[in-house]
């Protein structure tokens, strides 16, 4: 719902994602704070934020496939892995950095299309099972391929990125790179639902039989949804490869995929805002738990690292179940409710 007193004189003004001047100013302020981070933050915070941006790109891709088109994808981590391995190979062959990112994304997209092809025949969770197959097969295949191809059991080193002769491998520069790509990804994420493909995906999401009757090529839209989601995953994988500087198949497990999905569900899967809130919330939760576990480890060594992992899994699972049972629209909906209440204050909402 729009606040009272907001009107538009041109179509372009009405079509903006950020409608009010205040929204635009706060977005700019947030961006300025984030851009200034390398100047004020320490290496730990910078690393965490870079990781958060990379996760956010992957989850935005998931938001396209799962939230907008309604197709379950439990292979996002494998797709991120494809992007990362493609990056490691391409950068190893001396391909310039500006070309690596899009090519890695396209390779990932092509791989995802391979697993989305059953969409022509099946739907619903049957389609989810093909993505499960992709996720389970990914590490097996990577490790069985000859060492010279994808590094086998050991993994592949990644050549540090450089643009116009400037190295991008210092934490600060890598952070700026990730921030820039994330801003682009968020922009795409907010604008995709307003495009022709976005509206078609929405129709398929709501009822694919009805969408077919209305003349939407359902199978093609589903495959396009997987392809688009995998493009995001490929970019996230490329950045992750540069961030970790070394890729192995063990980084891209089913568990990571489930975590991506969990973040999306907790945040709310129907808008990119949900992806952002979910990633921030779950990462903050995990880091908080990590800190608490570290404190406990220092005071009393009864808890091991395994217990920390177990606790964070339990916590995420409980968050996801709570979101599914209590608030299927996720944190994004709560955010909207709070904003509306704030705007209408002192009058009650509804």
């Amino acid at each position: 719902m729009r606040p009272t007193g907001l009107w538009f004189e041109t179509h372009a003004a009405e079509a903006r994602v950020l409608e009010t001047r205040r929204a635009r100013l706060s977005a700019l302020a947030l961006l300025a704070v984030l851009a200034a981070m390398p100047l004020i933050a320490g290496p730990w915070l910078l690393g965490e934020l870079t990781n958060l941006f990379i996760t956010l790109i992957a989850v935005l891709g998931l938001c396209v496939t799962v939230g907008m088109a309604g197709q379950i994808n439990i292979a996002q981590s494998a797709f991120v892995g494809v992007g990362a391995f493609a990056t490691a190979r391409l950068s190893g062959m001396g391909v310039p950095f500006w070309a690596v990112l899009p090519v890695a994304a396209l390779i990932t997209g092509a791989v995802s299309v391979l697993f989305a092809l059953p969409a022509v025949r099946v739907r619903g969770f049957y389609l989810a099972l093909t993505t499960l197959a992709a996720q389970v097969m990914f590490p097996i295949i990577v490790m069985a391929l000859p060492m010279a191809w994808l590094g086998g059991l050991v993994g592949l080193p990644v050549t540090p990125p450089a643009l116009f002769g400037i190295g991008l491998s210092t934490p600060g520069r890598l952070y700026w790179l990730c921030l820039a790509v994330t801003v682009l990804a968020v922009w795409c994420g907010f604008n995709l639902p307003r495009s022709r493909l976005g509206r078609a995906m929405r129709a398929v999401h709501d009822n694919d039989t009805a969408a077919e009757v209305m003349g939407i090529p359902v199978a093609r839209v589903k495959i396009a949804a997987f392809f688009t989601g995998a493009l995001f995953a490929g970019v996230a994988g490329a950045l992750m490869a540069y961030f970790l500087q070394f890729v192995t198949a063990q980084n891209f497990t089913l568990f990571a995929s489930v975590w991506y999905l969990g973040m999306l569900i907790v945040g709310g899967m129907h808008s990119p805002l949900g992806a952002i809130l979910g990633v921030c919330f779950v990462t903050a939760l995990q880091e908080g738990l990590h800190k608490a576990a570290n404190l406990m480890l220092q005071s009393d060594s009864a808890l091991g690292g395994g217990a920390f992992f177990a606790l964070s899994s339990i916590l995420l699972a409980l968050c996801v179940l709570a979101a599914l049972i209590l608030e299927p629209r996720g944190l994004a909906h709560l955010w909207h409710q709070v904003m509306t209440a704030f705007r209408l204050w002192p009058f009650p909402r509804n």
Binding site: I72, I74, F125, A128, F255, V258, W259, L261, G262, I265, F309, A310, L311, S312, S313, I314, L316, A317, L318, V320, L321, L324
Partner: peptide, 14 residues
Amino acid sequence: FMAGVALLILLRGV
């Protein structure tokens, strides 16, 4: 389906 996925991580953690 998603509840099943959440159950997977919950049980693994427990």
